[in-house]
Design a protein around this nucleic acid. Structure first.
Ligand SMILES: NC(=O)c1ccc[n+]([C@@H]2O[C@H](COP(=O)([O-])OP(=O)(O)OC[C@H]3O[C@@H](n4cnc5c(N)ncnc54)[C@H](O)[C@@H]3O)[C@@H](O)[C@H]2O)c1
Ligand SMILES: NC(=O)c1ccc[n+]([C@@H]2O[C@H](COP(=O)([O-])OP(=O)(O)OC[C@H]3O[C@@H](n4cnc5c(N)ncnc54)[C@H](O)[C@@H]3O)[C@@H](O)[C@H]2O)c1
Lengths: 209, 209
DNA sequence: TAATTATTGTGAGTAAGTTCACAATTGAAT
DNA sequence: ATTCAATTGTGAACTTACTCACAATAATTA
């Protein structure tokens, strides 16, 4: 590994894929895996896998491959899922509910500790072990809890306002489902579902790939 | 526009963003827009906007900008949302429900015409105007309806099996929410929500961007 | 009509990302 | 001990994508 090289952005997404793949291999009881096999499972090239990993160190053994358990733990450190992240969800609608109910997140160390909504009729509603709290209680909640990440699942027209409220607190990042570019200093990751629909039909219409 | 140039893949995603942006401008009653303004709203460079559009034609007027209404219609044609796409959802769980209830999809010409689930206890459940149909009725449904796209919102372990069933019919594409690489000839667009969480914490840990 | 300002469309230059190809290493087989 | 097969890690070549910079054009103003 030549140090200080900066990491191409697409590598970031692929690290998450590798991590999930390694988890599956681990569950399947596989002890050693070659870059070729990881690549085949993900539909990419083996040289890509090796090059990507090489940005962070030398984890394999020539002629043998990678120790699944070991590499998995390395990836945990690299990605940052080696510790628990406390998450709150704002907006207890369709998406908010789906996120709170999804066990896959807890499995990957994202621990949802609160759900907020501005609609009083939703307050108190049970979602798994959590119950919906009114948005106005947010400050009180931040005073009592450490929150790392916020999932923003409110309508488009409320999103910017909520972000401005969030800037008062010391959160580390936002997962944003609203189809809008948020103006904020906080790191944001957009999840844009309708964009995926449009990409798909574009590809279909032009017979790309 | 120099023809036959092939279109960089990132352009595809941005076309969807431009389309949504133009829709907003239209609703705001704005008649002409400069690449600079579109770029500012999306947080990218104006030269990127112009270059992207140039792959498909010359839509602007020098010194003036782009006619919002006109460009919007051009984008509809380019992306393929100039006609209605018939969509069915398989899996009436959290994500399936969110998709069916989301009005934003219909607005962009994705018309959901059916929801299927393998769980008999969910059959008959109302989601908006639709009610959940048992998965075994799929063939009957395909015989009576034209289906363009399928949203796959079933658990990971069921996803590949469902895809193999879908290959019997003549669908054009799949939006896949299951965290797994589907083996199929049908064009697939993956929506990977936990990957977004991992990308976000990676960026936070390394203070990227 | 000429000057001024705004803005597009794009070739050329730069940057980012992927793939190739092979020396280095490992373990197994003979 | 030597050969053989498998597989990594990586510099270099290649491919893809982005940005710059400016001629061309349009509208406005003097
Ligand atoms: N449902 C989908 O499939 C889907 C797809 C793509 C994008 N989205 C986007 O995701 C976001 C959420 O979608 P949804 O379907 O869950 O919507 P939803 O209407 O079901 O839920 C939104 C929730 O946010 C709450 N809310 C509104 N203003 C608030 C505020 N200021 N503070 C706190 N809570 C507030 C509402 O009371 C509601 O419960 C929207 O921006 C939507 O555009 C949804
Ligand atoms: N909920 C989330 O926030 C979230 C986040 C990331 C990924 N996902 C993924 O999205 C997919 C759906 O998640 P969900 O939360 O909606 O799950 P869910 O369990 O709420 O819903 C899945 C539904 O699929 C149905 N189903 C199971 N096998 C089926 C089959 N063979 N045919 C038809 N229907 C079948 C189940 O009866 C259930 O109703 C999963 O693959 C999950 O990993 C969900």
């Amino acid at each position: 590994m030549k140090d200080k090289r900066k990491i191409p952005k697409p590598v970031i997404k692929r690290m998450g894929l590798y991590y999930r793949c390694l988890n599956k291999l681990y569950e399947e009881g596989i002890e050693y895996v070659a870059s070729k096999d990881i690549a085949a499972r993900l539909g990419i090239k083996s040289s890509q896998v090796r090059k990507d990993l090489s940005y962070f160190g030398e984890f394999g053994k020539r002629g043998v491959g990678y120790n699944v358990d070991q590499l998995m733990k390395k990836l945990e450190d690299i990605i940052g899922v080696n510790k628990i992240w406390n998450v709150i969800v704002i907006g207890a609608g369709n998406i908010g509910t789906a996120i709170v109910n999804y066990p896959g997140l807890k499995k990957e160390k994202f621990n949802i500790i609160g759900v907020f909504d501005a609609d009083r009729s939703k307050v108190g509603k049970k979602l798994g072990k959590l119950s919906v709290t009114h948005f106005s209680e947010l400050e009180k909640f931040f005073n009592k809890n450490i929150v790392d990440l916020v999932v923003l699942a409110v309508p488009e027209n409320a999103a910017q306002m909520v972000v401005e409220e969030l800037e008062k607190y010391n959160i580390k990042g936002i997962i944003n489902f609203a189809p809008i570019k948020l103006r904020t200093k906080i790191p944001v990751e957009d999840v844009d579902i309708t964009l995926s629909f449009k990409s798909l039909v574009f590809r279909i219409e032009r017979e790309i790939k």
